[in-house]
Amino acid sequence: MTDWLERLGSSTLSNMATLGRAILFLLRVVAGCGELVRRPRLLMRELYSVGVLTLVIIVVSGLFVGMVLSLQGYYTLVDFGAEQSLGVLVALSLTRELGPVVTALLFAGRAGSALTAEIGLMKATEQLAGMEMMAVDPERRVIAPRLIAALISLPLLAVIFTLLGIFGAYVVGTALLGVDSGAFWSQMQAQVSFADDVLNGVIKSVLFGLVAGWIAVFNGYDCMPTSQGVSRATTQTVVVTSLVVLALDFVLTALMFD
């Protein structure tokens, strides 16, 4: 019994210490972001590897999520004779929830894991220590551009995901299921509000971008500098990001849409 309590206590303490390190780390990185104004080239390269290279998986999954949503929504709505509302159903679920959340989950798998592995390997091969020796601050030079790139990329990816999802739903709904295309768009436009639905979705994805980027770069920076440590940190990034995004999404939804 005391053994169990002791283990619980020590794991709580070490988790708290990690959380504290993560918060201090974030504050230092945010303070070091001024560097990017002088060297926008650093940000460009990271935007490419974090954003552009994630685009393919976002485009493909956006289309398919929209198409599946259209099929499943239709089977339920048609029982009530409300298949004209298919566009509303798809657009609201994509703009409010699925767009930001699924994009953040895919982002964690595709870009977050890569960020952690890259930074962790830099640490394991002592490149970060080498930079410090040359009086180059790795937090400004390496971490800050990656965090900002995640923050910028995720909302853009989420918007593209949402739009392609709606397009996929439109194609399946009108071509395959025979929903009237005029009703599809007009009901959607009548029910979806830009300020309440689209903008809140974008705000969500900005926060998810911050969280996903933060967890990824912190896990890389904080990992044990061994091959096992890097692999564990990479796994940790994907797991923790997914859990935090889902929990945060619940809180944000409760705050935004009463």
């Binding site: 685009l55 657009a91 853009l156 593209i160 739009l163 768009w185 509000s193």
Partner: peptide, 15 residues
């Protein structure tokens, strides 16, 4: 592409 998608969401989806 991201900004264009936001623009389309504003004009076509949410009017």
């Amino acid at each position: 592409a991201g900004l264009a998608a936001l623009f389309v969401l504003a004009m076509q989806v949410s009017n």
